[in-house]
């Protein structure tokens, strides 16, 4: 589903990604782990199409199409969803309204009928409930005054509503307590089906205990240094990144 080959990218002239090769087949969950500054967030931004990240080499194909050629909203319509590490606030923009606008934009692009306000609210309420979120989160302004945990949950709620084909979770687990962590993992697990993939970027093994990945990749210095099964995450937890980065150097 997602094929990244030789991807290099820089931010304001500084190279961050230095040639990434990664294939995430349909139906699989892959984890990307790595120390701070290894390029994990850059990878997620490049995949979602942030303008100030310049791709200098390589290609990304999503279901065979050239992902890098698409505008951010086209990627969203194609089924790419980025759960932001630090979601931005949108003052005055009602969360439910935002979600309905986004959902209908995507549905329109997919040739599906749009939802009216009543249909949407029914769906959104059901999802909030399933994710054990307070209903007033829908009424509040997007991310404004949300705690760190609430922002992350809001991202998961959006993911559940938009039903992407590829979810990229950028350290969605950071700063979450155990309960919130379970909600995030359950949220992704609920989406798991043969035509759904996920790229889970994380520092910790914690999330991966509930959200068991098919593959684990170690990213450092803008390259993938090692790949393996779920056991690699446990190894990292006990031995740290040092051993791997040292071995690669």
């Amino acid at each position: 589903m997602l094929e990244i080959s030789g991807l290099a990218a820089s931010v304001e002239g500084t190279p961050i990604l230095r040639g990434i090769d990664l294939v995430v087949p349909s139906g699989e969950v892959h984890a990307i782990m790595g120390p701070n500054g290894s390029g994990k967030s850059t990878l997620s931004y490049v995949l979602a199409g942030r303008e100030d990240y310049t791709v200098t080499a390589g290609s990304v194909r999503f279901d065979g199409a050239d992902l890098l050629a698409m505008e951010p909203e086209m990627r969203a319509a194609a089924g790419v969803f980025l759960a932001f590490q630090a979601p931005v606030e949108l003052p005055g923009v009602n969360n439910a309204n935002f979600l309905r606008t986004a959902l209908n934009a995507i549905r329109r692009a997919r040739g599906e009928p749009e939802l009216d306000a009543v249909q949407f609210l029914k769906l959104a309420r059901a999802q909030s409930k399933a994710l054990a979120m307070p209903e007033d989160m829908l009424k509040r302004n997007v991310n404004v005054g949300f705690s760190g945990g609430e922002k992350k949950r809001n991202e998961v709620l959006q993911m559940a509503l938009l039903r992407p084909r590829l979810a990229i979770l950028d350290e969605t687990d950071s700063g979450l307590d155990i309960d919130a962590l379970r909600i995030v993992a359950d949220g992704v697990n609920a989406l798991r089906r043969p035509e759904f993939s996920a790229l889970v970027i994380t520092h910790h093994q914690r999330l991966l205990e509930r959200l068991v990945p098919d593959r684990v990749h170690v990213l450092a210095g803008g390259r993938i240094l090692r790949s393996g099964g779920p056991e690699l995450a446990r190894e990292l937890e006990t031995r740290g990144y040092g051993a791997i980065t040292a071995a690669a150097a």
Partner: peptide
Amino acid sequence: SEDQMFYCRARGLSQEDAVGLIVNGFCK
């Protein structure tokens, strides 16, 4: 902000939709 624009577009909104939404929020 570019962050706000990108966030909206990453959720599927076109540039114009995103601006309309943010401006309406600004005026709420």
